[in-house]
Design a binder for these strands. Sequence first.
DNA 1: CTCAGAAACTATAACCACTTCAGATTCAGA
DNA 2: TCTGAATCTGAAGTGGTTATAGTTTCTGAG
Lengths: 196, 196
Amino acid sequence: MATTMGRRERKKAQTRQALSDAALRLFSEHGYDGVTVAQIAEEADVSIATLFAHVPDGKEALIFDDGAERRVWLVAAVRDRPAGQSVLEALRRCMAGRGPFTDDLPPGLRSKRDLIVGTPALREYSRKLWIASEGALAEAIAAESGRDPSDMTVRALARYVLEIPELAGTEPDPLAAMNAIFDLLESGWPRSPGKP
Amino acid sequence: MATTMGRRERKKAQTRQALSDAALRLFSEHGYDGVTVAQIAEEADVSIATLFAHVPDGKEALIFDDGAERRVWLVAAVRDRPAGQSVLEALRRCMAGRGPFTDDLPPGLRSKRDLIVGTPALREYSRKLWIASEGALAEAIAAESGRDPSDMTVRALARYVLEIPELAGTEPDPLAAMNAIFDLLESGWPRSPGKP
DNA sequence: CTCAGAAACTATAACCACTTCAGATTCAGA
DNA sequence: TCTGAATCTGAAGTGGTTATAGTTTCTGAG
């Protein structure tokens, strides 16, 4: 069972957490580029080698988890949606409460979100994490719509949905922007009245 | 006039070309990760500092141009499309002949394309180049459809179109994949028959 | 309880992409 | 012809990242 982790795993998690905390604090104070991994390792009281053992994806990954949670929500949102609700509606609602789209957050998470949005390297890595769920989301969508998981249309839809956080995250009203994009995905682009 | 460049600009262009050629040759032979920038500089007979003076975006940019051409096609394709043709039709046709979507290429360009598609770092940079045209494309689309260039729907459409090369580039039949995605963007995702 | 092995950690050294800088060379235009 | 700007260069340095070899700490089986 995983109810109680062994001392080993507990210590590992502690170290990871210490790294994450140190990185977030230092980034917030001096900016992402103003902090070296050596400083972070020092602050967390581990060696540089240990730092990279915990974060194989590099400096940017320090303040993120591995994205496994998101994958679970997304797939669950699609699979367990209420009867009569479309896949896109389910995803729209699922996303509305997460990522950059909600305003009632503990001030800690809020400033973290601002840091990510304001730092290109972190924004890019955040996008990578979302996109890492593309395969899983595509499978869920395919299962619910009776299509093949390798169908390009399914993959494209999954990708486009997962791009929304980065696309809408910088807008003045992220939630409204997100809704506009979902509307586009649901209805398509109206073929304009043809030029001259 | 720019009919004849001065000796200075000519030499600059020569150096840039030498770097590009050297990089492409070495990448093709030893793989992207199997080549150091020092080797490329050596092969092109310039110093490392000079290499980076020509390619401020880094190693990956060596085999690419700055993407200004693409931007011109894209905007022109939207602005100068024949009467009665929708914006998306114009973009679909424009892309069909470019990027990874055509099979009749000189073998040099073909192998270059394969190198890019098969190398994550190069794929990613190629995507960045496409996305760099998002603003320009959004403006063109906005102008043709009577919307505001800051309209999120417009920006999202531009982004989604520019993502197509990376999305469809790895498919067995890239052209068919591209068409499927354009169909999705034109018609939207059919709200499936509702779950249980 | 013990012991073998796995896992986490460490210091050190190295590699590589990339930047900086001061100085030499080459070119453009007045 | 002369001045200033652009290009190039070597060298030194920064910072992220990995490899190695060895130490400590936990775990599970006997």
